[in-house]
Design a protein around this nucleic acid. Sequence first.
DNA 1: CACAGTAATGCAATCAAATTGCATTTTTAT
DNA 2: ATAAAAATGCAATTTGATTGCATTACTGTG
Lengths: 143, 143
Amino acid sequence: MKINPVNILKEHSLKHTKQRVRVLEEIALDTVAISQPELEKKLGKEIDRVTLYRILNIYEDKGILHRIMDMNGTANYAICSSSCSEEHHHDEHVHFNCTSCSKIYCLDVTVPKMVMPHGFKAVSMNTTAYGICEKCNLLVKEN
Amino acid sequence: MKINPVNILKEHSLKHTKQRVRVLEEIALDTVAISQPELEKKLGKEIDRVTLYRILNIYEDKGILHRIMDMNGTANYAICSSSCSEEHHHDEHVHFNCTSCSKIYCLDVTVPKMVMPHGFKAVSMNTTAYGICEKCNLLVKEN
DNA sequence: CACAGTAATGCAATCAAATTGCATTTTTAT
DNA sequence: ATAAAAATGCAATTTGATTGCATTACTGTG
């Protein structure tokens, strides 16, 4: 996934600041989601904690990033597919949270449509599978 | 769902204390999941915060309660179906997190089997739908 | 039914994620 | 270039959760 931070900011009419660009760059480095604490570790010397929180919130609101909560209740972020917007997150793919390395993957697996009970109107879905990821499975086999 | 706290404790060879009984009683009151902060509000005068956390953790470990993270990263708890055990949570039903009243419902909707990519071994799944619940939908229509 | 050993509880302190208010700096439109 | 608006940085605070340790409560044994 080729990401151009400057274009993304323009598309969503967000002001171009070096902090905002850095956050996008950093998140775009990897296809797996990155947690707020990890981001803070990487960017903490360049960007203030609070600014980081604010940027992440804006990006989520605008549909630029989607947020996945891990089992510890910590926010993890990944770049949204291009079809996401401020009005609606098309985040209908399955996430995989490795219980060994704790990485969160955005899988190319679509969440099947599920019928809600009468009266319940679902707007979005979040599906997370917990287990052992490819890399950790390989590590186990090697030993 | 008829719950007998004393029996549940016995079945899992947990010591019978009034705090443990109270926690189960309180959670069994409602079919919707209850958050740690709500529980603390209700039980804070009878049970110490730390004890509450410890009891909830034990119950989750033993497969008595299951824990659902809401969008704020706060733990919510609901009584497990009878088939849950220490080894495995059979928590394969869909949760519904109302974005209006923020209640979390355990729906009688089964999470469909999803095929994981090669190398990824899923042990458990968590699916949460976000939207407006039955009660909140009715409230809107009335006004 | 007493009592000793073990486990659970309560309290104080601490950690960590996230948020708020406000002064300062940066961006952008003119 | 500059003025208005917005973003950033800093300090302080809130909130969910955890840890260590002294005290209290439970349970099995005699």
